[in-house]
Design a protein around this nucleic acid. Structure first.
Lengths: 211, 211, 211, 211
DNA sequence: GATGAATGAGGATTCATTCAT
DNA sequence: TATGAATGAATCCTCATTCAT
């Protein structure tokens, strides 16, 4: 029997985003700022932060490069904002996914799938940037993102602690998992005729929580 | 009882490198070109390829930026050369490490430790660049590195296939391992009072090949 | 009796240029781009393309070198644009000059004087660049200029064909004329107390169309 | 009846050069310096002085760029030397050609053909450089070449004065001729199935000295 | 909010030239 | 004489950022 994707029983990505926008904790993706963030996320993911120019980001949403600075203080501010938005969204999504899972093992599965979907842009573009471009951020910006990320990681640690993972060190397990999952961005093609994302999640689960 | 590091029974890094240099398959690290490669590897690892200037690389070995182009055709050529050298060296080291291990499980452990040592620059600086800066390479350069890397990966796949890894898909296991290990570059501090590299390797082994 | 210069009965250079600018086929010489083109033409003529730096061109119009690339894609693009503008203008001027001449011989005289005036910058600066810097242009750029030049040369060939030139090969005559006239750029000084441009044209006419 | 080329009755190019080398007024083309001069002349003609690097010249004769400066003081010195050699050789050849012609008209024909052969590299490569790269030379170097060229031009002027050229101004006629002939370098292909060099010379003669 | 021209510091790269070996 | 590593100034070009309109 095909297991359910994370989405089952959850609010849809669109609904979730809408409610976060309503709460004022996320930028409206249809606003100029929101469209810039999306374009930037896509480009940073595709070509990397350093190789993306503000001109390209601006062109992507049909404005000129100078106009970007009405919305962001600097190029780094764009990156930081992207990361913040991604973090906020991923955290909400993760909370919702875990809440909808019954057993400890299901919860871990939900976390893995949730992060995989984020990494591969199914839910929100830009998650892989968090790992790949971390060093492009100034120390201050890193702190601001880390603060937002805290709870996201807390959920992960609790979930790993609850599941029966070998090694007995949830922090280490989490780090290995983060590396393994985020690297999948460079080789896993969800469109392919091979593994689906859900299948990949199950394989990973089998390794990090056997039985 | 403290298990042995990979190095036990192997030729020393220095000896290995010397013999590879003698074979003409590696650049003499004391030659101008070799010193440039080392400096570049260090800087690329520290700050990333895009954020490193040729001026900095040149300054690191005490020459002027223009002089670099006596040894390399372009900045990208430096990156490509670094990756090639790292690959050649890591391959030789890996072959030697695996050859010195008796059981399948020991061989896997040797692979993991070997790669961890490479990632953390204990053996050769620059291995983590292979993952982190892969996209900074042109398609042609990528191919040239991949050709050299082929056997390295072949050893990995055979070793994983021989060990009793869950999942039954050595290629997938390898990819997850590569992600998990290379990401350790951004959080693991070998100097720290925490885990040692050998201990980290054993933990990873426990997860990817339980029992 | 002093014969008339080409200008007689023609629209003035200023009027002609103004109408071409209005048609959108020439750049407004008062626009930033136009001023850059003029400065570049003057410098290329004076010192040659290779020995002229973009800094100098920029300085000539009071901007910094980097700002040039808002208007042109590359230094070669500047050269190409100069040649295109010069060609368009010279073509219009030539057409107008020939149209105002009554006899075949007068038409040839008009062509010669028109090209001489162009070469010596009396009408438009930069014509001599067309010959002197032709090899500095990429093959693609050469084609784009040649397309614009086609009609200019067609007028020449028809005019030579109509006049009673010895040799009976208008194409050859044109080539010899072009060489002879454009070389005058390096020795003829219109300001001098010697020959005037009009006199020079008449001498050339006497040689290439005797009687 | 096919008219004779200049060469008829003259010493062969090879003999002429040999005797000039013997006199010490020309560099032995088989000496290192001579081979450098030939390579440079060919490259300057092909790509222009500014676009030719000393590396290319050196490579052409199989030495390294640094070694060039054992033979020449600077890149400009190479250009100057090329022009001097070309001038000396052309002068000797011209004298010999004119001496072998009987009538004034024949003498003019010999001059034209002689210069055409020089321009198209049949006798010595590099003559077209004299016109095309004149501005690449410093004032001092220009003077040194002009001194050598004096007699060459004197022969031209006397010959033109002796022939029955229209216009009555040998200096002007010479200048127009020089422009017309040297420009042929950019369009005339001696190999082609069209005009031969001798035929071209006869056409030119017909224009500049009718009847 | 948007424009687009301009900035200006900095980037990689070129290349004639030098000089110890 | 030849080498080849190094120089160092200059080159074209890039790009985040500013600002008057």
């Amino acid at each position: 029997m095909q297991r359910d994707a994370v989405g089952a029983g959850m609010v849809s990505p669109r609904q979730l985003m809408a409610s976060l926008v309503a709460e004022g904790v996320l930028t409206d993706p249809d606003s100029p700022r929101g469209r810039l963030l999306n374009a930037a996320a896509r480009l940073f993911e595709q070509k990397g932060f350093a190789r993306t120019t503000v001109r390209e980001i601006a062109a992507e949403v049909g404005i000129l490069s100078g106009s970007i600075f009405h919305h962001f203080a600097s190029k780094e501010d764009i990156l930081c904002s992207v990361m913040q938005e991604v973090t906020v969204y991923a955290r909400a999504r993760m909370a919702s996914a875990v809440a909808g899972a019954d057993s400890p093992r299901e919860r871990l599965r939900a976390c893995i799938l949730c992060e995989l979907e984020a990494i591969h842009g199914l839910a929100v573009p830009g998650f892989s940037i968090l790992v790949a471009e971390w060093r492009s951020l100034s120390a201050d910006s890193q702190r601001s993102v880390l603060r937002l990320r805290d709870e996201y990681e807390r959920i992960w640690l609790e979930t790993i602690g609850g599941a029966d993972c070998p090694g007995g060190d949830p922090a280490l397990t989490r780090r290995l998992l983060l590396g393994a999952l985020s690297h999948s961005h460079s080789w896993f093609k969800p469109k392919g005729r091979g593994l689906s994302l859900v299948e990949l999640a199950d394989r990973v689960l089998l390794i990090f929580a056997p039985q």
